[in-house]
Design a protein around this nucleic acid. Sequence first.
DNA 1: GTCTATAGCAGGATAGAC
DNA 2: GTCTATCCTGCTATAGAC
Lengths: 215, 215
Amino acid sequence: MSKADNHDLTKDRLLDEAEALFARKGYDAVSVREITNAACCNLAAVNYHFGNKKNLYLEVFRARWIPRARRLQESFKKSLDGEEVASPRAVARALAEAFLVGPLSDEERFRHHQLMVRELSQSTEALELVVDEVMRPFFKKLAGMLRPSMPEESGTEHLMLNILSMFAMVLHFNFARAAVTRVTGREYTEAFKNRLVEHITEFSLTGLGVGEDLH
Amino acid sequence: MSKADNHDLTKDRLLDEAEALFARKGYDAVSVREITNAACCNLAAVNYHFGNKKNLYLEVFRARWIPRARRLQESFKKSLDGEEVASPRAVARALAEAFLVGPLSDEERFRHHQLMVRELSQSTEALELVVDEVMRPFFKKLAGMLRPSMPEESGTEHLMLNILSMFAMVLHFNFARAAVTRVTGREYTEAFKNRLVEHITEFSLTGLGVGEDLH
DNA sequence: GTCTATAGCAGGATAGAC
DNA sequence: GTCTATCCTGCTATAGAC
């Protein structure tokens, strides 16, 4: 019993600390020593539990990142339950809310987006997991929700580009915090995050909002 | 003469190869040996010319990245010369065009955005340079161009969030190529890049384009 | 399952010849 | 300015005791 406990706890601590460090510094900048120190266990534990460093990285995605992405999608879905039918505005707001405020702690949100951006910009094996198991199904669901509101003539590609654009904003305001803060002069307080949710919702609905005729 | 020549050529080759490698793999994943091999010079050359690896990285930004960012801004400015007054549509299109088609080769565009995203998501000393010398002034200019078209009551912050959002799209469609391709099924041909320019322009102007009443 | 000890190698950096 | 040779640190991974 205490054996199994130790096993699980060590493995869990390793996954947690590894994820935090990989997110903050990137795969190559983190050493196994650093991870095992942070997890208060022995250097050899990584090789025992995961075989090698790279496998630990992949396991971080399988055991931590992907489940969290699913929780985010659940949170998104719940936001929409109140609505009789998902209007584009409701979808945009629920999306922004789930990713910018949502169920995650600040630390978790940070981890999540840092790791995602690292994979998006430099695809390793983990990107396959991320795209195939999380992004594609989620985008498909979003497409289904938005399609009824779109002009008849717009195809799936148009829809996907729209979704990718909302996604780009959500991602950007999460991972480029340092730059956003430097440019706007605002820290990521609850108030500012709510302001960002408003902004993303509006921009998704009306762009710059200059009231130009629609075509 | 040949001395000075050799000096400059070696230094230039180092900067070029270093930038390419840092962009593709990230700072920590690249070794000085790898760089000097690619530049066909001796291991000690990095320390001779730049002092150390980190300084070489910073010099890549000073001597390569920032000048290229200036060229992009020039290209953006030129796109707008034909217009009597810069309408929001013209600004959005010029922005998307400069960054997605623009004056850079595919390889240069790739380098540029990879390095930028690395800095945006994990600020090192180079982020200060990037934000202070490139982003902030550029955003200020954009703000000046867009302000006349905005509703009276919207302040600078609203304007900045709008600019950051356009920027987020431009950036995203450049750095997340792998994922975009995986999701849309489209490679980054000239045709698709032009399609993206259209999309970014439209999304910037009207968002999802569902024709919702403006407020 | 967890530890110590260590093999074996790659990394950044430098001294000094040319 | 460029080279070779080398130092020394820190890395991943493993063998083997407990």
